[in-house]
Amino acid sequence: MVEDLLEGVIEGQGTWFAVVVLVVGAVVLTYSVEKLISYLTRAAMGFGVSIFALAIVFTGLEFDDTAVALVFGAGGLEDAALGTALGTALAITGITLAVAAIARPFPVDVPRDYLVLFALSPLLLVPFVLAGTLTAVHGLLLVAAFAALLGYVVVRESQRDVPVFRDSEIAERIEADGGVPLEEVSLAELDSRTVLEEIPEDRFVTDAAYEAAFWLGLSVLALGGLVVGSIMLQASSEVLVESWGIEETVFGATVLTLVLTFENLLLTIEPVRRGIPEIGVGHVVGSVIFSVTANVGVIAFVAEVTIPPAVLVFHLPAVIVLTAVAAAVIASGRLRRGHGYALAGLYVAYWLVAIFAFGGVPIPG
């Protein structure tokens, strides 16, 4: 695994190098998130589709979680892989969405049918958990379920009467990203040049026919940078913990949790700060749906998973409840600080019960 190789290199150089890698990783991650937001915005406008749909595709697919699931599953750590998938689903709503609402309350408009799919997605796991063992067939069904849900959103978005960024109200919010005022601009004239502040990459766009594909390609590169930054953060933090002698459980419950959720926090809070909450909410919705369907399914591809009793009686019900509450607050039309405190409170309560009654919590990925 790339992270293990990098960790070995860092250990060979010493603590000072781990600190350098940690700082560089944070910079790479932050820069990549900033660029991903700009590129996705332009790609959505170029294709005339919703940024919400693109956000689900590009930020909702947890590639690092998939890699962890494959490695853990192949290495006989199926329970750890399953815990990571469930932990991610919990942390996305209980930490990421909660912190975003507390830090910067924001309006949000997500179609009700999407929220229904979001709220019900954890229930797709129930029959498989009741079966007691996840097999490759179950994994295939879960991946197919994710593909169907994703396909529904993409098709539905392409058919919406007013795609995101063709709506003047939404476009006006982009002014927070440095865009120009829109009072004198007609909707027919809206494009990335009239709405968004110019970025250096704009000068490379010479053919409007390929503009959308160009920005989509850069989005893929930015996503790669995001993954690289995350790997650097995780590998360096683990080396620092070992060298500083921090107790492993304490590390997992504090430092590792913060490191593993840093990427998700950036992908949710930064778009909100820049006036494009569709990216942040799309990330939350996509990540939860992916975690409870395709990510669990991938684990079953490499090894059969015997479901621990605690998953059925506690961890999965916690995911179901927290996801339903998150869907309800999103449906309200505006995320407020009270919503954030409620989500965070439920997440803390989950941790306390998990630690004292079930002996531990899944670590979010």
Rank of each mutant, 00 (worst) to 15 (best):
M1D: 15
L5N: 13
G8P: 12
V9S: 14
V9N: 12
E11R: 15
G12A: 15
G14C: 15
G14D: 14
G14H: 14
W16V: 15
F17Y: 13
V24D: 11
L29C: 13
S32D: 14
I37Y: 06
T41R: 02
A44D: 01
A44H: 02
M45K: 04
G46H: 05
F47S: 10
F47R: 11
V49I: 10
A55W: 00
T59L: 11
G60A: 04
A67K: 01
E78I: 00
G83K: 01
G83C: 02
A89I: 00
T96Q: 06
A98Q: 00
I102A: 05
A103H: 05
R104T: 02
P105R: 03
P107Q: 06
D113M: 11
L115K: 06
L115S: 08
L117W: 00
L120V: 04
L125M: 14
V129P: 03
A131K: 11
G139P: 06
L142Q: 11
A144F: 08
A144T: 09
F146N: 13
A148E: 10
L149I: 11
G151W: 07
V154N: 01
V162A: 11
V162G: 03
R173I: 05
V180D: 09
L187K: 15
A188I: 09
T194Y: 00
V195G: 12
E198K: 13
I199S: 12
I199N: 08
F204M: 05
F204V: 05
A209I: 00
E211M: 07
V220G: 13
G224K: 02
G224C: 08
G225N: 12
I231P: 03
M232E: 08
A235D: 00
S237M: 09
V241F: 04
V250A: 15
F251G: 14
G252T: 06
L256M: 09
T257W: 01
T257K: 02
G275Q: 10
I276F: 02
I276W: 00
H283K: 01
V284N: 07
V285C: 08
F290G: 09
F290V: 08
T293K: 11
T293C: 14
A294M: 13
V298I: 12
A303Q: 02
T306F: 00
P308M: 07
P308K: 05
L312I: 08
V313I: 13
V313L: 12
F314V: 05
F314G: 08
P317H: 14
V319F: 05
I320D: 03
V321W: 09
V321F: 13
T323K: 12
A324C: 11
A324L: 13
V325L: 15
A331K: 10
L335W: 03
L335H: 06
A342Y: 07
A344N: 09
A349I: 00
Y350L: 04
W351R: 03
A354R: 00
F356Y: 14
A357V: 10
